[in-house]
Write a protein that binds this DNA or RNA. Structure first.
Lengths: 336, 336
DNA sequence: ACGATTTGTTGGAACGTTCCAACACTTTCG
DNA sequence: CGAAAGTGTTGGAACGTTCCAACAAATCGT
């Protein structure tokens, strides 16, 4: 609107000093006399001066900006992670460019490319869909961290995720402690995370001497998938009294399958989900779940990235965080 | 990692042409001979050249970037709106810097300031918390659009939102058509949107000759608020057979209140929510709702912004979009 | 009292692009 | 055949910052 935005030069002219001094003052250097500083601040305020971040980043070759790529904003667990990332980033005085891949690898690639053009100093990938090759290439170009997935041994790339195997074991332990023996698992499909959770379930069942009770029903990380898997489990003749469902959304679907059969939760069948999304705590759902510390995963992930920015040659690190059991109304003692 | 990123000069040297020509070629000008173009592309690929967006935006004084400020990422309806915005923005070849206000006006202000330093060409405010004064100031500085709230008459500022009054009327109409007469309203608190919905409810009730049946119970746009309001409604002696709840999250809470009293939905009491968030469609909730076209609101909002960027002097516009009724299992015929 | 330090301040060169006026060559065509 | 129009290319100036070497003025230590 203003005919032309004021620049550092205009401020200098009005304050009667050189542009260099204005530059120093704006960044709060202590080598500026009180008088000059006052004059400069006054002039800047009067003109409505705002530093130009593009020029700044060009001149000192640092953008003070991080790129955050998230698979899909609609997934509430990612939103909670992002909140953690943003907090940490703000603390470091950095900024954030957030883009979505829309669950589409091609778009995702393009967005990453754009972020790199913006000279972001680091990349946070939340639930990416990148083929291993390009992940490698990116990490070679720019410090990066992968959140909520374990990547090991790629140079320049750190990662952080919750320990899915151990979380799945907690779910089974909890159900066993309530007296359940015929505990079925509704899977989350063929992806890595789902397989880890399934593995943890099988391990824990075996450890409890329930190996022959192991029963997996094919599901997915969706309402629909959970419904389908739970339906199959309930309609089987194995008399399952408890269901460990691969994630919370699917657990919501499982709840519906139980209701459709005029059974009650948790009296007839107990349900445990995974993720600890806020939604699972709503009183009409009240799902017992294995909660990931989502915000912490976000902030520690960002922390990892800042470490790498500080020392780009450090060896790749992976942090595994422990999930924790939150007991709600969807699980209860076994009555049979 | 590379000692120094290659610049346009390096590409020029390798291809044996001037930097100006490389600049032209990179932007796909047709004034470049086929030979030169080939040589340049080859050289760029070989060096892994990537244009520097900061330098570009400095030189042509356009950032090709929009700032998006969202009140709170955790609210799923905002996530759906953002998706719409991003789609539209991508179509225009622009980029997006997304920041959150964390529901905190001070942080929100700071983030907006940063976006302006980045020379964003426009601002999308989704559910802001800005005092009217600073909104004014911002709009004077930079084209802006407010999404999901109606702002009228501020120069340089457009807005788009669904028509809450008309949506609330639809909810009541639906319930009346099912035979309900004692229809209560669980409010969403004192905010503008909640008041509009309440107003629509009262209007429609009056239009149907049910003025003396009007009954509002204090709630909020939360699970807890919906539970509280619905509890009060159900415990009253007015025999309400239907509840119009101010938004979907609150409707989920209302569902719990009904269940706690050993009543059934929709046999004993019908429930209608508002917003049309994806969550309301989960089969174990299956809430009848007044759905806002969230993605469309996002993309049309962004469209408005592009119009204003094209012509900064156009008079402020407001778009009201019609919500629509989605009937699910939480509403049914009145049985009393 | 005089060089050494400290305290403020300065102009100019970067940073990596885009734009522009200018150029050398073709080609067109009246 | 010569002027006009087109085609491809170029170097240099700009964009708004930060950095650096240099400097003038004030203060210090002996």
């Amino acid at each position: 609107m203003a005919p032309n935005r004021p620049t550092i030069k205009d401020v200098a002219a009005l304050a009667g000093v050189s542009k260099s001094l204005v530059s120093l003052a704006m960044r709060g250097s202590d080598r500026v006399s009180a008088e000059s500083r006052a004059a400069i601040i006054e002039a800047a305020a009067q003109l409505g001066y705002r530093p130009n971040a593009a020029a700044r980043s060009l001149a000192d070759r640092r953008s003070h900006t991080l790129g955050v790529v998230v698979l899909d904003l609609l997934n509430p667990i990612y939103a909670e992670i992002i909140d953690g990332v943003q907090g940490e980033v703000r603390q470091h005085g950095y900024h954030t460019m957030l883009v979505t891949g829309n669950d589409n690898p091609v778009i995702e690639q393009g967005e990453v490319e754009k972020l790199l053009e913006f000279q972001v100093e680091g990349l946070v990938l939340i639930g990416h869909r990148m083929p291993a090759g390009s992940l490698d290439a990116i990490a070679g170009d720019c410090p990066a961290v992968v959140i909520s997935r374990a990547e090991r041994g790629i140079a320049g790339l750190d990662s952080i995720s919750n320990d899915d195997v151990s979380g799945a074991r907690m779910a089974v332990d909890h159900l066993v402690s309530l007296g359940h023996r015929s505990i079925a698992h509704v899977t989350g499909g063929g992806n890595e995370v789902a397989l880890l959770r399934k593995f943890g379930y099988e391990q824990s069942m075996t450890d409890h001497g329930l190996a022959e009770q192991i029963a997996c029903y094919e599901g997915a990380f969706t309402d629909e998938g959970g419904y389908r898997g739970a339906a199959a489990a309930l309609d089987s003749d194995r008399g399952h009294t408890a269901l460990f469902v691969a994630n919370d959304i699917a657990a919501v679907g499982a709840l519906a399958a139980v209701a459709d059969r005029a059974l009650n939760v948790p009296t007839d069948v107990s349900i445990v989900g995974y993720d600890g999304m806020a939604l699972a705590s709503l009183r009409s759902l009240s799902i017992t779940t294995i909660a990931q510390p989502l915000a912490r995963i976000g902030s520690e992930g960002a922390g990892l990235l800042f470490l790498r920015i500080g020392d780009p040659t450090r060896p790749p690190a992976h942090i595994g965080v422990e999930p924790r059991l939150i007991v709600r109304n969807s699980s209860g003692a076994c009555h049979t």
